[in-house]
Design a protein around this nucleic acid. Structure first.
Length: 378
RNA sequence: GGUGGGGUGGCCGAGUGGCUAAUGGCAGCAGACUGUAAAUCUGCCGGGCUACGCCCUACGUAGGUUCGAAUCCUACCCCCACCA
């Protein structure tokens, strides 16, 4: 269980297969985010129909509501949500970052003020493991400390070292929890270190010393740093990452980020942008972004993206989708969310095919020039 | 026909002498969003410019008072309510 098989490579790009308790995942792969145990706005069948092989859940949010005890009593997150394929939960580490204004951090852990009712909640590495074990995802993440993208070397060093110390505690507690059932859930560590090459290297070395691991995540990117900085981090880590383990670039990304990540050896991605932008009326297409509310779509009978096979593109016109947004019908938000998810999943699927047939580089080059032809940024 | 109330930018609606090209809201337009405190947030929104400044045209219509009027006065037009 948790084995990763490399099926082929093209330069740094890799195509693999990851075996998890609830199924296998073919990589490269985009994982939709379902913070509260649901991909926002979508039915699990729609998520599966979009080609999702694995989705995320969130420790912090599910801990607050409904509580991991409730989820456990209802049979775990898979049964509770009826999502039967693999699942990964984030540790709450991202909330250390995103809720920085309402938390207090020390070596022991992080005290959050609940954004729901103002109550104080304490999450430590051990607590995160306990919550994630109760939720029951196939893959769980270490509780880490991440910082804004442009943090100083001193701050990044501090957070990176804390993340390593917390990793020891995560591993210890998770080992206790899974002792009787080691094939049910696996824990992945997270490389931190900001945009500082030496810190990233030290973080990875610290992680590998503590191994073995069934996968390695790269966190703390796409949090405000310039894109080339993220690319340099990935390039710096690539030669040192275990070849036979999946690499998960956390919280990334936009379509071009998937291309650049895959080209630099990343296997797994997750990002809320597909669903959030979908709800906000921004769709990705092979020719760049399309604002679904845009006046130019008013009488456009064509699909959002002529190349797309999603539930929105195979049936509805741009004019109708625009109408739904203007009329504030939820169907519009749902359809564009489905489209964006399908777009990223299909991008990863195509990348995999191109890696396997050896044409990844030329395909990626053509993809970039078309996607950015209109001069857009992402 | 009489009495009272009212006519403000695409719509609704503030504003009762200068700080008003005119508060708000809606509609419209554009943009942002990366391990989800987001069905959210931001900007533009009379016209024209050799534009972070200037010039036009604007508060029913026409005239008047005033250094200065959406704001005061007069006439007219229209709308609403009630009374005949």
């Amino acid at each position: 269980m948790f084995e990763f098989t490399l099926n082929g490579t093209a330069g740094a790009a890799r195509a693999g297969t990851l075996a998890l308790p609830h199924g296998t995942v073919q990589t490269p792969c985009f994982m939709p985010v379902g913070t509260h145990g649901a991909v926002r706005g979508l039915h699990p069948d729609e998520v599966a129909a979009a080609g999702a092989q694995i989705i995320l859940g969130n420790t912090y949010h599910l801990h607050l509501r409904p509580g991991e005890d409730v989820v456990a009593q209802l049979g775990g997150l898979h049964r509770f949500s009826t999502w039967s394929k693999p699942m990964l939960t984030d540790s709450g580490g991202f909330q250390v970052f995103s809720l920085s204004a309402m938390r207090k951090l020390d070596e022991q852990g992080v005290e959050f003020v609940s954004h729901i009712d103002g109550s104080k909640r304490f999450i430590s590495p051990e607590k995160s493991m306990e919550i994630q074990w109760a939720l029951g995802a196939d893959v769980i993440m270490a509780f880490d400390h991440l910082l804004p993208g442009q943090s100083s070397a001193e701050d990044a060093h501090d957070a990176m070292q804390r993340t390593l110390r917390w990793l020891d505690r995560c591993r210890h507690r998770h080992g206790e929890l899974t002792a009787g059932d080691p094939n049910r859930q696996t824990l992945w560590p997270i490389v931190q270190g900001g945009t500082h090459a030496d810190l990233r290297h030290a973080s990875l070395m610290g992680i590998l010393e503590r191994g073995p691991w069934t996968g390695v995540a790269i966190g703390g990117l796409s949090v405000g740093e310039p894109k080339p900085a993220m690319h340099r981090v990935l390039e710096g880590l690539n030669p040192h990452l275990p070849v036979d383990r999946p690499r998960y670039l956390m919280g990334v990304g936009f379509p071009d980020d998937l291309i650049e990540g895959i080209a630099r050896g990343v296997d797994l991605f997750d990002c809320v942008a597909a669903t959030r932008n979908g709800r906000h009326g921004s769709a990705w297409t092979a020719d760049g972004k399309v604002s679904v509310r845009g006046a130019t779509l008013r009488l456009d009978p064509g699909p959002l993206d002529a190349d797309c096979d999603c539930a929105a593109c195979t049936r509805f016109s741009r004019a109708y989708l625009r109408h739904l947004f203007v009329a504030e019908e939820q169907l519009g938000q749902r359809l564009v969310s489905i489209h964006n998810i399908r777009f990223l999943i299909r991008l990863a699927e195509t990348a995999r095919a191109r890696i396997l047939d050896g044409t990844f580089d030329s395909w990626a080059a053509a993809w970039r020039s078309r996607y950015f032809a209109k001069g857009e940024t992402s």
